[in-house]
């Protein structure tokens, strides 16, 4: 995922993101993607609206659009009361929802989420997935990594990697058919058993 986002330089292989090459066109890729890291990475010492404004500004949104989108975003997230709160003071679940909303603020073609729901309760996780569906409905491709196999069921297409290689890539339904089971957990176990690497 870090290679696709242009954060790491690939050693071999070939990949295109939003139509651009991951070797030479990383800065062009960055214009068209959103990214939410595993580690929370908005500015704790900036207020909620200031974080939205900063990233809106960085992606070159016009001033009025930043203001409108900030209002809309806060309304959807029910964060209007927290507008002037420092991000550092918010609970983790809210931070993650805010972080995701900021990652898609500039209407990217594709957004990368690196284990976005780690460490939050099932209710918050469910809400988070509702946000993901909303984004997908707007036409944004959502690329999620996860360790939770129930989350894999929510996806349109699933790829399972073993030892750094893609061992399966299909819809959850087709994968379950191929492995003759009724849940993604079993698909994962069947594939993961082949792993040779220790970690």
């Amino acid at each position: 995922m870090r290679m696709l986002c242009g954060l790491s330089v690939p050693t071999s292989g070939e990949a295109h993101v939003a139509g651009y090459d991951v070797y030479n066109e990383t800065e062009k890729i960055k214009k068209h993607i959103g990214y939410m890291s595993q580690k929370f990475s908005l500015y704790d010492d900036l207020k909620v609206w200031e974080n939205v404004r900063l990233f809106g500004g960085i992606y070159g949104l016009p001033k009025q659009q930043i203001i409108d989108r900030t209002d809309k975003l806060l309304k959807i997230l029910n964060l209007e009361d927290q507008r002037n709160a420092l991000v550092g003071s918010l609970p983790l679940g809210w931070k993650q929802k805010l972080s995701f909303s900021i990652a898609i603020l500039h209407d990217p073609k594709i957004v990368f989420l690196d284990e976005p729901t780690g460490g939050v309760d099932p209710v918050t996780r469910r809400r988070f997935w509702e946000l993901i569906y909303d984004a997908a409905r707007k036409g944004i491709t959502v690329f999620v990594t996860t360790h939770y196999m129930d989350e894999a069921e929510y996806c349109d297409r699933v790829s399972i990697m073993v030892d750094g290689r893609i061992e399966a890539l299909d819809t959850p339904e087709n994968l379950k058919l191929a492995f003759k089971t009724d849940n993604m957990g079993d698909v994962f176990y069947a594939l993961a058993r082949k792993a040779k690497r220790g970690d």
Binding site: L7, K28, K30, S37, K39, S41, L42, D44, I58
Partner: peptide, 14 residues
Amino acid sequence: EIGTIEQINVTPVP
């Protein structure tokens, strides 16, 4: 250290 640089690096900011 905090990790915020990553969020900046993934944007098109020169």
